[in-house]
Design a protein around this nucleic acid. Structure first.
Lengths: 199, 199
DNA sequence: GATAGTGGCTAGTGCCACTATCCACACATT
DNA sequence: AATGTGTGGATAGTGGCACTAGCCACTATC
Protein backbone atom coordinates (compact mmCIF):
# COMPACT_ATOMS: atom_id res chain seq x y z
CA UNK A 1 0.00 0.00 0.00
CA UNK A 2 1.79 3.09 -1.24
CA UNK A 3 1.88 6.35 0.70
CA UNK A 4 0.25 8.45 -2.04
CA UNK A 5 -2.69 6.06 -2.10
CA UNK A 6 -3.15 6.41 1.65
CA UNK A 7 -2.95 10.17 1.31
CA UNK A 8 -5.58 9.92 -1.40
CA UNK A 9 -7.89 7.92 0.86
CA UNK A 10 -7.42 10.40 3.69
CA UNK A 11 -8.24 13.23 1.33
CA UNK A 12 -11.34 11.42 0.10
CA UNK A 13 -12.57 10.92 3.63
CA UNK A 14 -12.24 7.15 3.64
CA UNK A 15 -9.51 7.09 6.25
CA UNK A 16 -8.85 9.30 9.25
CA UNK A 17 -5.48 11.05 9.24
CA UNK A 18 -2.73 9.41 11.20
CA UNK A 19 -2.30 10.60 14.73
CA UNK A 20 0.83 12.60 15.05
CA UNK A 21 3.05 11.14 17.71
CA UNK A 22 5.63 13.62 16.57
CA UNK A 23 5.31 16.12 13.72
CA UNK A 24 7.08 13.85 11.26
CA UNK A 25 5.83 10.53 12.48
CA UNK A 26 2.20 9.64 12.31
CA UNK A 27 1.15 6.42 13.89
CA UNK A 28 -1.20 4.33 11.87
CA UNK A 29 -2.65 2.05 14.46
CA UNK A 30 -4.37 -1.26 14.07
CA UNK A 31 -7.67 0.47 13.41
CA UNK A 32 -6.14 2.25 10.42
CA UNK A 33 -4.81 -1.00 9.00
CA UNK A 34 -8.18 -2.63 9.61
CA UNK A 35 -9.94 0.22 7.87
CA UNK A 36 -7.53 0.02 4.97
CA UNK A 37 -8.22 -3.68 4.57
CA UNK A 38 -11.92 -2.95 4.60
CA UNK A 39 -11.49 -0.29 1.92
CA UNK A 40 -9.46 -2.60 -0.27
CA UNK A 41 -12.00 -5.38 0.15
CA UNK A 42 -14.89 -3.11 -0.79
CA UNK A 43 -12.93 -1.67 -3.70
CA UNK A 44 -11.37 -4.79 -5.20
CA UNK A 45 -13.74 -7.58 -4.28
CA UNK A 46 -16.97 -5.67 -3.83
CA UNK A 47 -16.42 -3.36 -6.79
CA UNK A 48 -17.73 -0.29 -4.97
CA UNK A 49 -16.74 3.19 -6.05
CA UNK A 50 -14.79 5.48 -3.77
CA UNK A 51 -17.87 7.67 -3.34
CA UNK A 52 -19.96 4.66 -2.27
CA UNK A 53 -17.29 3.57 0.15
CA UNK A 54 -17.31 7.04 1.68
CA UNK A 55 -21.04 6.68 2.32
CA UNK A 56 -20.50 3.29 3.92
CA UNK A 57 -17.64 4.59 6.08
CA UNK A 58 -19.74 7.52 7.24
CA UNK A 59 -22.53 5.13 8.16
CA UNK A 60 -20.14 2.88 10.05
CA UNK A 61 -18.68 5.77 12.02
CA UNK A 62 -22.07 7.20 12.91
CA UNK A 63 -23.04 5.54 16.20
CA UNK A 64 -26.56 6.93 15.90
CA UNK A 65 -27.27 4.92 12.81
CA UNK A 66 -29.14 1.71 13.40
CA UNK A 67 -28.03 -1.59 11.98
CA UNK A 68 -31.07 -1.65 9.76
CA UNK A 69 -30.26 1.73 8.23
CA UNK A 70 -26.64 0.77 7.88
CA UNK A 71 -27.63 -2.23 5.84
CA UNK A 72 -29.76 0.01 3.68
CA UNK A 73 -26.81 2.31 3.09
CA UNK A 74 -24.56 -0.57 2.15
CA UNK A 75 -27.19 -1.99 -0.17
CA UNK A 76 -27.62 1.41 -1.83
CA UNK A 77 -23.88 1.61 -2.41
CA UNK A 78 -23.93 -1.74 -4.12
CA UNK A 79 -26.53 -0.83 -6.68
CA UNK A 80 -24.97 0.43 -9.90
CA UNK A 81 -26.19 3.71 -11.25
CA UNK A 82 -28.77 3.38 -13.99
CA UNK A 83 -28.68 6.59 -15.95
CA UNK A 84 -31.06 5.55 -18.64
CA UNK A 85 -34.34 4.63 -17.09
CA UNK A 86 -35.93 5.09 -20.45
CA UNK A 87 -36.70 1.42 -20.79
CA UNK A 88 -39.93 0.70 -22.53
CA UNK A 89 -41.39 -1.91 -20.21
CA UNK A 90 -40.10 -0.43 -16.98
CA UNK A 91 -43.59 0.27 -15.70
CA UNK A 92 -44.74 -3.30 -16.26
CA UNK A 93 -41.57 -4.50 -14.58
CA UNK A 94 -42.23 -2.28 -11.57
CA UNK A 95 -45.69 -3.79 -11.22
CA UNK A 96 -44.18 -7.23 -11.45
CA UNK A 97 -41.74 -6.36 -8.68
CA UNK A 98 -44.53 -4.95 -6.53
CA UNK A 99 -46.50 -8.15 -7.05
CA UNK A 100 -43.52 -10.23 -6.02
CA UNK A 101 -42.98 -8.17 -2.88
CA UNK A 102 -46.63 -8.54 -1.98
CA UNK A 103 -46.64 -12.28 -2.64
CA UNK A 104 -43.56 -12.75 -0.51
CA UNK A 105 -44.75 -10.46 2.21
CA UNK A 106 -41.45 -8.67 2.12
CA UNK A 107 -41.13 -5.47 4.09
CA UNK A 108 -39.43 -3.50 1.36
CA UNK A 109 -40.00 0.15 0.59
CA UNK A 110 -41.48 1.02 -2.76
CA UNK A 111 -38.71 3.23 -4.13
CA UNK A 112 -36.00 0.93 -2.84
CA UNK A 113 -32.86 1.01 -4.99
CA UNK A 114 -32.73 -2.78 -4.99
CA UNK A 115 -36.29 -3.19 -6.22
CA UNK A 116 -35.71 -0.47 -8.77
CA UNK A 117 -32.62 -2.32 -9.99
CA UNK A 118 -34.67 -5.48 -10.18
CA UNK A 119 -37.29 -3.71 -12.28
CA UNK A 120 -34.64 -2.41 -14.67
CA UNK A 121 -33.11 -5.87 -14.99
CA UNK A 122 -36.48 -7.48 -15.61
CA UNK A 123 -37.31 -4.86 -18.21
CA UNK A 124 -33.99 -5.53 -19.93
CA UNK A 125 -34.68 -9.27 -19.96
CA UNK A 126 -38.12 -8.72 -21.36
CA UNK A 127 -36.78 -6.34 -23.99
CA UNK A 128 -34.22 -8.92 -25.02
CA UNK A 129 -37.10 -11.25 -25.75
CA UNK A 130 -36.84 -13.54 -22.76
CA UNK A 131 -40.07 -12.82 -21.02
CA UNK A 132 -40.36 -16.41 -19.87
CA UNK A 133 -37.48 -15.70 -17.57
CA UNK A 134 -39.91 -14.35 -15.04
CA UNK A 135 -40.91 -17.91 -14.23
CA UNK A 136 -37.61 -18.49 -12.48
CA UNK A 137 -38.13 -15.45 -10.28
CA UNK A 138 -39.88 -17.45 -7.60
CA UNK A 139 -37.08 -19.97 -7.38
CA UNK A 140 -34.58 -17.12 -7.19
CA UNK A 141 -36.58 -15.45 -4.46
CA UNK A 142 -36.61 -18.68 -2.45
CA UNK A 143 -32.84 -18.94 -2.67
CA UNK A 144 -32.43 -15.24 -1.90
CA UNK A 145 -34.51 -15.58 1.25
CA UNK A 146 -32.40 -18.50 2.33
CA UNK A 147 -29.16 -16.61 1.73
CA UNK A 148 -30.46 -13.50 3.48
CA UNK A 149 -31.38 -15.53 6.56
CA UNK A 150 -27.88 -16.94 6.69
CA UNK A 151 -26.44 -13.46 6.28
CA UNK A 152 -28.48 -12.05 9.12
CA UNK A 153 -27.62 -15.02 11.33
CA UNK A 154 -24.00 -14.27 10.65
CA UNK A 155 -24.43 -10.62 11.53
CA UNK A 156 -26.38 -11.44 14.69
CA UNK A 157 -23.53 -13.50 16.13
CA UNK A 158 -21.54 -10.36 16.81
CA UNK A 159 -22.12 -8.37 19.95
CA UNK A 160 -19.87 -5.34 19.86
CA UNK A 161 -21.14 -2.66 17.53
CA UNK A 162 -17.83 -2.15 15.79
CA UNK A 163 -17.68 -5.83 14.91
CA UNK A 164 -21.32 -5.91 13.98
CA UNK A 165 -21.27 -3.14 11.42
CA UNK A 166 -18.24 -4.63 9.78
CA UNK A 167 -20.03 -7.94 9.64
CA UNK A 168 -22.90 -6.27 7.87
CA UNK A 169 -20.59 -4.77 5.30
CA UNK A 170 -18.64 -7.95 4.77
CA UNK A 171 -21.75 -10.10 4.75
CA UNK A 172 -23.40 -8.03 2.05
CA UNK A 173 -20.66 -6.73 -0.19
CA UNK A 174 -18.14 -9.54 -0.09
CA UNK A 175 -20.94 -12.03 0.35
CA UNK A 176 -22.29 -10.89 -2.98
CA UNK A 177 -18.99 -11.63 -4.69
CA UNK A 178 -18.68 -14.98 -2.93
CA UNK A 179 -22.15 -16.06 -3.87
CA UNK A 180 -21.68 -15.00 -7.48
CA UNK A 181 -18.52 -17.08 -7.68
CA UNK A 182 -20.27 -20.06 -6.12
CA UNK A 183 -23.15 -19.65 -8.51
CA UNK A 184 -20.87 -19.68 -11.52
CA UNK A 185 -19.11 -22.77 -10.20
CA UNK A 186 -22.42 -24.53 -9.64
CA UNK A 187 -23.51 -23.53 -13.13
CA UNK A 188 -20.30 -24.92 -14.55
CA UNK A 189 -20.93 -28.16 -12.73
CA UNK A 190 -24.55 -28.40 -13.82
CA UNK A 191 -23.63 -27.52 -17.38
CA UNK A 192 -20.89 -30.13 -17.41
CA UNK A 193 -23.34 -32.79 -16.27
CA UNK A 194 -25.85 -31.91 -18.96
CA UNK A 195 -23.78 -30.80 -21.93
CA UNK A 196 -20.26 -31.82 -21.07
CA UNK A 197 -20.32 -35.11 -22.93
CA UNK A 198 -21.62 -33.62 -26.17
CA UNK A 199 -18.40 -31.76 -26.90
CA UNK B 1 -29.19 4.81 -29.64
CA UNK B 2 -27.00 7.34 -31.41
CA UNK B 3 -25.30 6.65 -34.74
CA UNK B 4 -21.75 7.24 -33.43
CA UNK B 5 -22.34 4.65 -30.72
CA UNK B 6 -23.45 2.09 -33.28
CA UNK B 7 -20.42 2.88 -35.39
CA UNK B 8 -18.30 2.40 -32.30
CA UNK B 9 -19.82 -1.02 -31.65
CA UNK B 10 -19.28 -2.03 -35.26
CA UNK B 11 -15.67 -0.93 -34.99
CA UNK B 12 -15.22 -2.88 -31.78
CA UNK B 13 -16.54 -6.02 -33.38
CA UNK B 14 -19.70 -6.23 -31.27
CA UNK B 15 -22.04 -5.62 -34.16
CA UNK B 16 -21.84 -6.59 -37.84
CA UNK B 17 -21.91 -3.68 -40.28
CA UNK B 18 -25.25 -2.82 -41.82
CA UNK B 19 -25.98 -4.30 -45.21
CA UNK B 20 -25.87 -1.68 -47.91
CA UNK B 21 -29.11 -1.52 -49.79
CA UNK B 22 -27.68 1.48 -51.59
CA UNK B 23 -24.28 3.05 -51.01
CA UNK B 24 -25.72 5.66 -48.70
CA UNK B 25 -28.39 3.58 -47.03
CA UNK B 26 -27.59 0.66 -44.81
CA UNK B 27 -30.37 -1.52 -43.53
CA UNK B 28 -30.21 -2.59 -39.95
CA UNK B 29 -32.46 -5.61 -39.71
CA UNK B 30 -34.19 -7.17 -36.74
CA UNK B 31 -31.09 -9.21 -35.90
CA UNK B 32 -29.12 -5.99 -35.55
CA UNK B 33 -31.67 -4.52 -33.18
CA UNK B 34 -31.76 -7.75 -31.20
CA UNK B 35 -27.98 -7.77 -30.97
CA UNK B 36 -27.98 -4.16 -29.87
CA UNK B 37 -30.43 -4.94 -27.09
CA UNK B 38 -28.23 -7.80 -25.99
CA UNK B 39 -25.18 -5.51 -25.93
CA UNK B 40 -26.98 -2.87 -23.91
CA UNK B 41 -28.24 -5.49 -21.46
CA UNK B 42 -24.77 -6.94 -20.96
CA UNK B 43 -23.26 -3.47 -20.66
CA UNK B 44 -25.81 -1.71 -18.43
CA UNK B 45 -27.34 -4.49 -16.38
CA UNK B 46 -24.58 -7.08 -16.48
CA UNK B 47 -21.76 -4.60 -16.08
CA UNK B 48 -19.53 -6.35 -18.59
CA UNK B 49 -16.74 -4.49 -20.35
CA UNK B 50 -16.76 -4.03 -24.10
CA UNK B 51 -13.85 -6.46 -24.41
CA UNK B 52 -15.76 -9.12 -22.45
CA UNK B 53 -18.83 -8.57 -24.57
CA UNK B 54 -16.74 -9.09 -27.68
CA UNK B 55 -15.63 -12.48 -26.33
CA UNK B 56 -19.22 -13.42 -25.61
CA UNK B 57 -20.37 -12.29 -29.06
CA UNK B 58 -17.62 -14.30 -30.72
CA UNK B 59 -18.67 -17.35 -28.72
CA UNK B 60 -22.30 -16.86 -29.67
CA UNK B 61 -21.49 -16.54 -33.37
CA UNK B 62 -19.23 -19.58 -33.38
CA UNK B 63 -21.50 -22.53 -34.22
CA UNK B 64 -18.73 -24.97 -33.37
CA UNK B 65 -18.68 -23.92 -29.77
CA UNK B 66 -20.64 -26.17 -27.44
CA UNK B 67 -23.13 -24.85 -24.95
CA UNK B 68 -20.87 -25.92 -22.13
CA UNK B 69 -17.92 -23.95 -23.46
CA UNK B 70 -20.15 -20.99 -24.19
CA UNK B 71 -21.22 -20.92 -20.58
CA UNK B 72 -17.58 -21.02 -19.57
CA UNK B 73 -16.83 -18.05 -21.80
CA UNK B 74 -19.70 -16.06 -20.37
CA UNK B 75 -18.68 -16.93 -16.83
CA UNK B 76 -15.11 -15.84 -17.58
CA UNK B 77 -16.38 -12.51 -18.89
CA UNK B 78 -18.28 -11.95 -15.66
CA UNK B 79 -15.30 -12.33 -13.41
CA UNK B 80 -13.66 -9.00 -12.61
CA UNK B 81 -9.97 -8.68 -13.15
CA UNK B 82 -7.92 -9.16 -10.01
CA UNK B 83 -4.60 -7.53 -10.68
CA UNK B 84 -3.17 -7.90 -7.25
CA UNK B 85 -3.10 -11.56 -6.35
CA UNK B 86 -0.61 -10.72 -3.66
CA UNK B 87 -3.02 -11.58 -0.90
CA UNK B 88 -1.42 -13.17 2.06
CA UNK B 89 -3.79 -16.04 2.69
CA UNK B 90 -4.57 -16.77 -0.93
CA UNK B 91 -3.01 -20.21 -0.74
CA UNK B 92 -5.07 -21.22 2.26
CA UNK B 93 -8.14 -19.88 0.53
CA UNK B 94 -7.36 -21.95 -2.58
CA UNK B 95 -7.15 -25.07 -0.44
CA UNK B 96 -10.44 -24.17 1.16
CA UNK B 97 -12.02 -23.81 -2.28
CA UNK B 98 -10.58 -27.12 -3.40
CA UNK B 99 -11.99 -28.77 -0.29
CA UNK B 100 -15.39 -27.29 -0.99
CA UNK B 101 -15.33 -28.50 -4.58
CA UNK B 102 -14.37 -31.97 -3.44
CA UNK B 103 -17.03 -32.04 -0.73
CA UNK B 104 -19.69 -30.95 -3.18
CA UNK B 105 -18.50 -33.26 -5.91
CA UNK B 106 -18.55 -30.37 -8.32
CA UNK B 107 -17.00 -30.92 -11.72
CA UNK B 108 -15.05 -27.70 -11.78
CA UNK B 109 -11.59 -27.25 -13.21
CA UNK B 110 -8.80 -26.27 -10.85
CA UNK B 111 -7.74 -22.98 -12.43
CA UNK B 112 -11.31 -21.90 -13.06
CA UNK B 113 -11.74 -18.11 -12.98
CA UNK B 114 -14.79 -18.48 -10.76
CA UNK B 115 -13.00 -20.60 -8.18
CA UNK B 116 -10.03 -18.26 -8.32
CA UNK B 117 -12.35 -15.33 -7.69
CA UNK B 118 -13.85 -17.22 -4.79
CA UNK B 119 -10.40 -17.80 -3.34
CA UNK B 120 -9.56 -14.11 -3.61
CA UNK B 121 -12.82 -13.13 -1.97
CA UNK B 122 -12.33 -15.62 0.85
CA UNK B 123 -8.79 -14.39 1.39
CA UNK B 124 -10.09 -10.82 1.57
CA UNK B 125 -12.71 -11.81 4.12
CA UNK B 126 -10.15 -13.62 6.19
CA UNK B 127 -7.76 -10.69 5.98
CA UNK B 128 -10.50 -8.36 7.17
CA UNK B 129 -10.74 -10.48 10.28
CA UNK B 130 -13.93 -12.35 9.52
CA UNK B 131 -12.64 -15.86 9.27
CA UNK B 132 -15.83 -17.22 10.76
CA UNK B 133 -17.54 -16.22 7.57
CA UNK B 134 -16.43 -19.47 6.04
CA UNK B 135 -19.10 -21.21 8.05
CA UNK B 136 -21.79 -19.75 5.86
CA UNK B 137 -20.11 -21.11 2.75
CA UNK B 138 -22.04 -24.36 2.88
CA UNK B 139 -25.36 -22.58 3.07
CA UNK B 140 -24.32 -20.38 0.17
CA UNK B 141 -23.25 -23.40 -1.84
CA UNK B 142 -26.64 -25.01 -1.24
CA UNK B 143 -28.44 -21.96 -2.52
CA UNK B 144 -26.03 -21.63 -5.45
CA UNK B 145 -26.69 -25.21 -6.50
CA UNK B 146 -30.40 -24.57 -6.36
CA UNK B 147 -30.11 -21.42 -8.46
CA UNK B 148 -27.81 -23.10 -10.97
CA UNK B 149 -30.30 -25.94 -11.45
CA UNK B 150 -33.04 -23.43 -12.17
CA UNK B 151 -30.75 -21.63 -14.60
CA UNK B 152 -29.93 -24.77 -16.51
CA UNK B 153 -33.60 -25.77 -16.59
CA UNK B 154 -34.35 -22.42 -18.10
CA UNK B 155 -31.66 -22.85 -20.72
CA UNK B 156 -32.76 -26.39 -21.54
CA UNK B 157 -36.25 -25.25 -22.49
CA UNK B 158 -34.96 -23.69 -25.68
CA UNK B 159 -34.45 -25.80 -28.74
CA UNK B 160 -33.05 -23.59 -31.49
CA UNK B 161 -29.38 -22.86 -30.98
CA UNK B 162 -29.72 -19.14 -31.51
CA UNK B 163 -32.33 -18.95 -28.75
CA UNK B 164 -30.35 -21.27 -26.55
CA UNK B 165 -27.12 -19.33 -26.51
CA UNK B 166 -28.96 -16.13 -25.77
CA UNK B 167 -30.70 -17.88 -22.91
CA UNK B 168 -27.34 -18.87 -21.53
CA UNK B 169 -26.13 -15.31 -21.65
CA UNK B 170 -29.29 -13.85 -20.20
CA UNK B 171 -29.56 -16.57 -17.58
CA UNK B 172 -26.07 -16.00 -16.30
CA UNK B 173 -25.31 -12.31 -16.73
CA UNK B 174 -28.69 -10.73 -16.17
CA UNK B 175 -29.59 -13.53 -13.77
CA UNK B 176 -26.69 -12.44 -11.65
CA UNK B 177 -28.02 -8.90 -11.43
CA UNK B 178 -31.54 -10.14 -10.73
CA UNK B 179 -30.44 -12.45 -7.98
CA UNK B 180 -28.29 -9.77 -6.37
CA UNK B 181 -31.25 -7.42 -6.31
CA UNK B 182 -33.48 -10.10 -4.84
CA UNK B 183 -30.86 -10.88 -2.25
CA UNK B 184 -30.64 -7.27 -1.16
CA UNK B 185 -34.41 -7.07 -0.93
CA UNK B 186 -34.55 -10.22 1.15
CA UNK B 187 -31.80 -8.86 3.36
CA UNK B 188 -33.73 -5.63 3.80
CA UNK B 189 -36.79 -7.62 4.79
CA UNK B 190 -34.89 -9.86 7.21
CA UNK B 191 -33.11 -6.86 8.70
CA UNK B 192 -36.37 -5.00 9.13
CA UNK B 193 -37.85 -7.95 11.00
CA UNK B 194 -34.89 -8.19 13.35
CA UNK B 195 -33.70 -4.64 13.82
CA UNK B 196 -36.44 -2.51 12.33
CA UNK B 197 -38.21 -1.84 15.63
CA UNK B 198 -35.07 -0.71 17.42
CA UNK B 199 -34.74 2.48 15.40
C1' DG C 1 22.30 20.82 8.44
C1' DA C 2 20.88 17.51 5.04
C1' DT C 3 17.31 13.89 5.15
C1' DA C 4 13.00 12.26 5.45
C1' DG C 5 8.68 12.33 7.10
C1' DT C 6 3.95 15.02 7.92
C1' DG C 7 -0.67 17.05 5.99
C1' DG C 8 -2.56 19.84 2.22
C1' DC C 9 -2.78 21.17 -2.33
C1' DT C 10 -2.88 21.06 -7.63
C1' DA C 11 -2.25 18.73 -11.54
C1' DG C 12 -1.25 14.82 -14.30
C1' DT C 13 -1.83 9.57 -15.80
C1' DG C 14 -4.06 5.64 -17.61
C1' DC C 15 -8.02 3.24 -18.61
C1' DC C 16 -12.48 3.01 -20.67
C1' DA C 17 -16.87 3.98 -22.92
C1' DC C 18 -18.15 6.75 -25.79
C1' DT C 19 -18.25 11.06 -29.10
C1' DA C 20 -16.78 14.40 -32.63
C1' DT C 21 -14.67 15.30 -36.72
C1' DC C 22 -12.75 14.43 -41.03
C1' DC C 23 -12.20 11.54 -45.22
C1' DA C 24 -13.54 9.78 -49.98
C1' DC C 25 -17.36 8.03 -52.01
C1' DA C 26 -22.10 7.64 -54.17
C1' DC C 27 -26.75 8.57 -54.83
C1' DA C 28 -30.71 12.12 -54.46
C1' DT C 29 -32.42 16.45 -54.77
C1' DT C 30 -32.43 21.07 -56.72
C1' DA D 1 -24.04 20.76 -62.64
C1' DA D 2 -24.15 21.80 -57.72
C1' DT D 3 -25.32 20.74 -53.36
C1' DG D 4 -26.81 17.84 -49.64
C1' DT D 5 -27.09 13.59 -47.19
C1' DG D 6 -25.71 9.21 -45.78
C1' DT D 7 -22.18 5.31 -45.94
C1' DG D 8 -17.96 2.91 -43.79
C1' DG D 9 -13.30 3.84 -41.95
C1' DA D 10 -10.06 6.27 -39.24
C1' DT D 11 -8.03 9.50 -35.77
C1' DA D 12 -8.47 12.16 -32.05
C1' DG D 13 -10.97 14.21 -28.22
C1' DT D 14 -14.24 13.95 -23.79
C1' DG D 15 -15.50 12.89 -19.24
C1' DG D 16 -15.37 10.05 -15.33
C1' DC D 17 -12.66 7.59 -12.07
C1' DA D 18 -8.88 5.63 -9.29
C1' DC D 19 -4.99 6.73 -8.45
C1' DT D 20 -0.08 9.11 -8.78
C1' DA D 21 3.43 12.70 -8.90
C1' DG D 22 5.14 16.70 -7.33
C1' DC D 23 5.37 20.94 -4.70
C1' DC D 24 4.58 23.47 -0.26
C1' DA D 25 5.94 24.82 4.60
C1' DC D 26 7.18 22.60 8.60
C1' DT D 27 9.99 19.76 11.92
C1' DA D 28 12.21 15.81 14.43
C1' DT D 29 15.93 12.78 13.52
C1' DC D 30 20.60 11.31 11.72
Amino acid sequence: MSIPTIKFYVREGLLPAGELTSPNQASYGETHVQRLRLIRALLDVGGLSVASIREVILAIDDPERSVHKLLGTVAAGLVPRYDRESHAGIEDARKQVAALIAARGWRVQQGNPASEALAVALAAVDEAGHGAFTEVLDAYADAAERVARVDLDYVAREVAREELVESVVVGTVIGDAIFSALRRMAQTDASDRRYGQST
